[in-house]
């Protein structure tokens, strides 16, 4: 580990520790805690979407399928069977990962755009299935009953831990052989395949990891929301918010998803007082960013000041 990396991870650990202790001090209001919870939640989702789109070249418009399935898995495990939340959490992750693994076989051979649409279609199909499924109470939705119900502070710690873990996981993946393969694949897929990079295997791994972590995030999200309905759970709005966060923060950057989640949640919170207009304003901001600064906040800053936080590029690749 280089000296610079040591400093970066040192700062990361300190910030994390401070955030972790924050709710224990009681200094933060409930409202602030809710905002913090959402930032961490979207940081998880954005991190996973960035792993897919920013590094593995898989533009997914179907993240809502993992979130929705997890919401329901949590409801079934915890409410219908009265199991502890930990189990709901694990089942959510595993079910989402299996869903991703299964879909890998079907979807990963498709090129960019087709993959994007296919993930969306699959989400719509799952929504239709859930709407007609007795076990999950058709379109009527389910409540999520967890006893003992964790406090908001505990929920925040949980999602914060997941956010930190997902960040470190993506970093570790990018620094490993997988990262090298992904970089080669992005530069020239044919050449990478010729060099023996198993593109399919690598994409499957990214997609499955994405399913697993997004699923766990979805489970915590629904723990917080207390009820789950097919229309909301499988709404494309989830993906819209995630894509917004990553675009604003900066695609293919390590810290972009976190910065983006911050900006998105704060902006969303701020704009919520302009009911009806808030989504329109968010959409306009997103488009403006794509046109003016397509690399997002972190990408633009890194280009201008010639630095890269948590750089995963190896000198040998340059």
């Amino acid at each position: 580990m280089s000296r610079r990396m040591k400093t970066e991870y040192g700062v990361f650990a300190v910030v994390l520790a401070v955030l972790f202790v924050l709710p224990l001090t009681g200094a933060a209001s409930d409202n602030a805690m809710r905002i913090a919870f959402n930032i961490a939640l979207y940081a998880v989702f954005a991190q996973m979407w960035n792993l897919m789109c920013g590094y593995a070249g898989l533009l997914s418009l179907g993240q809502q399928m993992f979130i929705g399935v997890s919401g329901y898995a949590t409801a079934v495990v915890c409410t219908s069977y009265g199991m502890p939340f930990v189990l709901g959490l694990l089942v959510s992750g595993v079910v989402s990962a299996l869903l991703a693994l299964f879909l890998s076989v079907l979807l990963l051979r498709m090129r960019g755009l087709y993959f994007a649409i296919a993930t969306w279609i699959v989400s719509e199909m799952i929504k239709i299935l859930f709407t007609g499924w007795k076990l999950v109470n058709y379109a009527g939705g389910m409540t999520i009953r967890v006893t003992p119900y964790p406090t908001l502070s505990q929920q925040f710690m949980l999602i914060l831990a997941l956010a930190a873990a997902s960040f470190l996981l993506v970093q570790a993946m990018l620094r490993s052989k997988i990262g090298l393969g992904l970089a080669a694949m992005r530069d020239d897929p044919d050449a990478a395949a010729g060099l023996g990079v198993n593109i399919f295997k690598m994409k499957t791994l990214c997609f499955t990891v994405c399913g697993f972590v997004t699923g766990i995030g979805g489970s915590i999200a629904y723990l917080n929301r207390l009820s789950v309905f097919p229309n909301g759970a499988f709404a494309i709005d989830w993906t819209i918010a995630i894509v917004f966060a990553v675009i604003i923060g900066g695609t293919s950057t390590a810290t972009g998803p976190i910065v983006g989640a911050f900006v998105y949640v704060l902006l969303f919170n701020f704009l919520s007082r302009y009911a009806g207009y808030s989504n329109i304003i968010l959409g306009v901001i997103a488009i403006a960013v794509i046109v003016v600064a397509p690399k997002g906040i972190m990408g633009t800053l890194q280009n201008r000041f010639k630095f890269e936080l948590f750089s995963s590029t190896r000198p040998s690749l340059d």
């Binding site: 533009l59 306009v284 488009i287």
Partner: peptide, 10 residues
């Protein structure tokens, strides 16, 4: 692609 996605949302 993302611009049209944003436009659809708007």
């Amino acid at each position: 692609l993302l611009i049209t996605f944003g436009l659809s949302f708007i």
